[in-house]
């Protein structure tokens, strides 16, 4: 195990900035920033990266939590079951509020898997050792066998890096979200009606709106994946830079913020997925009827208010 002295707290940054030791040389350097994950080893053509390991770690955490909590469930919950039920219960209520009771129940497993998987994938960035334990690059000279100091301090490949800071991870979840939304749309509305949302030849405006809907579907994949990637990657870099400039104290201040950002990003991703799922099972006719109903209600309310006055 190699442990760069500059990375006692999470770090991934680098560059020319360095802190000078008494002798005039750098005590440690900011690590280099790589957008892509690092391949640690390969199995045939398949690369095993540090973000993939983190996603497995997140999967294990989610599975241990849920399978542990639901293994022997009691009517009166306590301990882990109570905690998991509390979290899942809030999400069930949210799903049922947004999509209605029957659809909310049907969407919950998918939305909950996204939420909890992303939540723990985001939160792993604050675990000590993530981004800071790794394999030294060739030609480095570890101090005491495990520490990298001075010019060598940023020359290592971290073993674990937050999964959400890898576009492969966020893009995969975004693709799944959009594809599953389309599957629900086809299954609920039928092929003709669902395709009719995108290819509408009845009137020019409807046609343009349909084209915009197609563009929006692709834009959704990009916005989903880049929003999550950008937030978590930026947070990771922030913690690393602060960990290098002001070890221990700097990142600690930002841990609560990163926990909050991690939660918000997981929630936004799953909430948007839920909203798009709800929209996918609604036909244009239903939307118009709903809009007309709302308009009618508003007119009715206005009329009632007018009558009162």
């Amino acid at each position: 195990m190699f442990w760069p002295i500059s990375h006692l707290l999470p770090s991934l940054t680098g560059g020319a900035t360095h802190i000078l030791a008494d002798a005039g040389g750098p005590l440690w350097l900011l690590p280099g920033i790589d957008v892509g994950p690092t391949t640690l080893f390969t199995i045939g053509p398949f690369p095993v990266t540090n973000t993939l390991i983190n996603s497995w770690l997140s999967m294990i955490i989610v599975l241990v939590l849920f399978l542990g909590a639901t293994r022997k469930m009691a009517i009166v919950p306590k301990g882990l079951q109570n905690f998991v039920e509390w979290g899942a219960g809030l999400l069930i209520d949210f799903c049922e509020e947004v999509a209605g009771k029957p659809w909310g129940r049907r969407f919950f497993p998918f939305v909950a898997t996204i939420f909890f998987y992303l939540l723990f994938a985001n939160w792993t960035e604050i675990i000590p050792g993530v981004d800071s334990l790794g394999t030294p690059m060739p030609g480095t000279h570890p101090v005491a066998g495990i520490f990298l100091l001075g010019n060598d301090s940023n020359k290592f490949y971290p073993w674990v890096r937050p999964a959400s800071s890898d576009l492969n991870f966020t893009l995969a979840i975004a693709l799944i979200s959009v594809v599953v939304t389309q599957i629900y749309g086809f299954r609920t509305l039928g092929f003709r009606q669902h395709v009719g949302k995108y290819l509408n030849f009845r009137d020019p405006i409807g046609f343009i709106v349909g084209i915009l809907e197609i563009v929006a579907e692709f834009a959704r994949i990009i916005s989903f994946s880049f929003r999550l990637f950008g937030n978590v990657f930026a947070g990771d870099v922030l913690l690393i830079v602060l960990g290098t400039l002001l070890p221990f104290i700097g990142p600690t201040v930002f841990y609560p913020l990163e926990l909050f950002v991690g939660f918000i990003q997981a929630f936004v991703f799953s909430a948007l997925t839920l909203v798009f799922l709800s929209l996918a099972i609604t036909s244009h006719e239903d939307e118009h009827a709903s809009a007309a109903h709302t308009e009618h209600s508003e007119v009715g309310e206005l009329a009632s208010a007018d009558a009162v006055h």
Partner: peptide
């Protein structure tokens, strides 16, 4: 941006 088809597939499989 480090996108790799194998990794993308692995993440899809993971989920």
């Amino acid at each position: 941006l480090g996108i790799n088809p194998w990794l993308l597939g692995a993440q899809l499989l993971n989920f």
